[in-house]
């Protein structure tokens, strides 16, 4: 299985290569990708140099252009596709069908992947992308169990890729409007979930209050592990009590499920975290490189815990081991 690793900066891309990535995914520094955070991402020149460096090291670069173009502003997305192709991208990760159509017509030899933002979660949806645009791989949403992934992969007309570590989005990705409701900006359109421009941290004697767009979404006690200020992981008080309504602050860690994912026929494993630093990229990529090598060699993986890197200092296998309907 290929190990697909995140890079938010050229330095992180280099760290991912050195740590054993088979491929790195990254995006341009604008709203065309779903991690459009301040100070993050690649200029055109950085992308060209990053792809050249990866290719010299035997790694691939997949360019994420996975937001949905604005009406009247589609040129920005078309330019991103053209520039990624001319920079030598090994694949484009796209979500919007109009952009898929543009890429397939304009660059018929370019490998296309269906982003998780497209929420293609069944064989029929996947078949549409394959038949209409020649998509070669689909990134599956993080709401499927391993048996469901196996079933989809068996029927899918292209390769499948699944997340194995990092942020655990429990929504129908590409369709979630929680961030947009609170801030007017979303990962789907502007490339930012819970944008930093709308986040406020307040230190109080009771702990740290995190606010998003004027809504208080959590209060962490002085020594309580914290999470991202996203509405889906907010802790709310209702007449029934106080607690997490959608999900606790927790990260996905599927290290223990690698064999099951391999047996399911999955082609590639993705590490989330383009917004994270080099230390995260280095440690998490090394961890999964070691785990995959051990799996290939029939050995038990001797791997350190990734707990310090997890949101809320806790991990889960999420829907991969689904105990609910």
């Amino acid at each position: 299985m290929e190990l697909i690793c995140p890079a938010g900066t050229p330095a992180a891309l280099k760290s991912a290569i050195e740590a054993g990535a088979d491929a790195i995914y990254c995006g341009f520094n604008d709203e065309t990708n779903a991690r459009n955070f301040p100070g993050l991402n690649f200029s055109r020149d950085e992308m060209r140099r990053g792809i050249a460096l990866a290719h010299r090291s035997g790694a691939k670069v997949l360019v994420a252009i996975n937001t949905f173009p604005r009406a009247g502003g589609v040129d920005l997305w078309h330019r991103a596709v053209d520039d990624a192709v001319s920079a030598g991208a090994d694949a484009l990760i796209l979500a919007d069908i109009g952009l898929m159509d543009y890429a397939a017509r304009r660059h018929p030899n370019q490998r296309l992947h269906v982003s998780v933002q497209a929420a293609a979660a069944n064989p029929d949806a996947i078949a549409f992308y394959v038949e209409a645009f020649g998509a070669r791989r689909v990134v599956l949403p993080r709401v499927l169990s391993v048996p469901e992934i196996a079933e989809i992969t068996r029927e899918a007309a292209c390769e499948t890729e699944v997340f194995v570590f990092g942020g655990l989005c429990v929504m129908a990705e590409g369709r979630c409007s929680l961030s947009s409701y609170a801030t007017g900006k979303s990962p789907n359109m502007q490339g930012v979930c819970s944008p930093a421009s709308h986040v406020v941290y307040q230190q109080t004697p009771q702990g740290t209050n995190s606010r998003l767009g004027g809504f208080t979404i959590n209060r962490f006690g002085p020594d309580e592990p914290a999470g991202y200020p996203t509405l889906c992981k907010g802790r709310f008080s209702t007449e029934l009590g106080t607690g997490y309504i959608f999900e606790d602050p927790v990260s996905l860690d599927a290290t223990t499920l690698l064999k099951g994912l391999r047996d399911a026929g999955v082609t590639a494993l993705k590490i989330e975290g383009r917004q994270r630093g080099r230390a995260y990229v280095d440690s998490v990529v090394r961890h999964f490189r070691g785990a995959l090598d051990a799996l290939a060699g029939g050995r038990e993986a001797d791997i350190a815990s990734l707990k310090p890197f997890t949101e809320g200092q806790a991990s889960t296998v999420g829907a991969y081991r689904k105990t609910w309907k």
Partner: peptide
């Protein structure tokens, strides 16, 4: 770049 800023936030070592 030896530690991850988000990780320090999660562990409350960074405010």
């Amino acid at each position: 770049g030896k530690v991850d800023g988000d990780a320090l936030m999660f562990s409350r070592d960074l405010v």
